[in-house]
Design a protein around this nucleic acid. Structure first.
Lengths: 229, 229
DNA sequence: AACAGATTTTGACATAAATCAAGGAATCAA
DNA sequence: TTGATTCCTTGATTTATGTCAAAATCTGTT
């Protein structure tokens, strides 16, 4: 489908590739629709290939024995996921499922490894993708270990404000439940923190719209993580 | 120095390279002694290259504003570290310092990127290294977010017991303070947990020697994380 | 052997966040 | 519109772990 071609040729992984290579890629790829809540792979499954999101949003997550979920990443259009087993040779370290109605492309390991061996620039792109992912993990570990929930939440808002380049209003593209899971907490706690930040005049919440009232306050909170009472 | 050659030619990254390439690598590498507690790079520094540990042990870590430390990784002989900026083009996301008297090799970015572009097998090795590192981070995030300190500690012991392949006794190669920092807690808490595990007959502690008394108990603890009072 | 410094342990206490339980709101389908 | 399901909020309580302070132990050095 032509949408897939557009996404691929713009993607971090394959941008810069000549059209013939993109065609070759598309010819080995398998497109798959994913509905909300549909499981794509489970932790421990053997990874016979990796995926690129064409449309929608995919979460990669872990579950505790008691059922608490921690989202590790979310992947939108153009972003690859599930590549770790392709290179490490082991099973998927986490599970993946659709957060919204999505379409994804599956690339079999073998064909992709061949492409990389042939094509140093794709290898470089892949190295860059994995490096950026490592950097993100670094931040996530820092957040979980060294910061408290309000600081993580403030940091998330500031990041979103950059990504959506909007100074004063951001729109959550995920549910608050998912946000809680991404921040490493539970919905109850998130709800309380949102109320507290509201009471302190930092933000205003209206369903999925967050109005930033005190950016500097948020920045301090993100860095030092202390909220007066 | 000849030690470096041996380590490099056995390392995950460069194993399989012909001797001429190893020689080329050694000719561009800069060897550096590192003493205990010596800083190698700081978060935010621009990364002009990466390192391989030849001897000793290096920690890569983050600090909170209040000074709490979280160790992200520790790297022993043959293990590369600090590669993220080489491929992502940004600054170091964390800091590195010697945990013991060490020797490291520094590889300038440029020369290394050239080597990779020439040498698909090195690129593949590097992809494998980064993939494995991502897998580790996955576990670390899971531990911090979904498990409690006793479960992380039990998991650590079981892992060490595998790595040191010794069923019943393991020897910590780092101080308890560092272990606490690696597990995302503080020395006081670690100390208490060790005592508790001792009281429950799971382990016996004698300075840096840990005797495993109840392996199955440890496995349950690592998975479910519940200790009866 | 003895000191200085670092490391580890212990106790009393504070607190962030999880749990449990229930009630409200929003969303979707029929 | 109605009901049904999911999502979100709120309050009361518990709990794991952090903080602070001090003592005890270990380590290497002179």
């Amino acid at each position: 489908m032509s949408k897939a071609r557009g996404i691929l040729s713009q993607s971090i992984l394959f941008s810069g590739l000549p059209e013939t290579d993109i065609n070759a890629l598309l010819s080995i790829a398998i497109e798959k629709p994913v509905s909300t809540g549909e499981l794509i792979f489970s932790e421990g499954d053997s990874g016979d290939g990796f995926y690129v999101t064409i449309e929608g949003l995919i979460k990669v997550y872990k579950l505790s024995t008691e059922g608490k979920e921690q989202i590790l990443h979310m992947f939108g259009p153009g972003e690859p996921f599930g590549e770790v087993p392709v290179f490490s040779g082991e099973a998927f370290p986490a599970s993946a499922e659709g957060i919204k109605k999505s379409r994804i492309l599956f690339f079999p390991r073998r064909a992709f490894r061949d492409l990389i061996a042939q094509n140093p620039s794709v290898a470089m792109n892949m190295l860059a993708v994995l490096s950026r992912r490592l950097r993100n993990f670094t931040v996530q570990v820092e957040n979980l270990s060294l910061k408290e929930v309000p600081a993580r939440l403030a940091g998330y808002f500031l990041l979103q404000s950059e990504e959506q380049n909007s100074e004063d209003t951001i729109t959550l593209n995920i549910s608050k439940g998912h946000l809680a899971s991404f921040l490493g907490t539970i919905p109850e706690t998130l709800s309380r923190m949102l109320r507290k930040m509201n009471e302190q005049g930092l933000i205003e919440v209206e369903s999925r719209k967050i109005r930033i009232l005190d950016r500097q306050g948020l920045e301090e909170l993100a860095e030092f993580g202390k909220m007066e009472t």
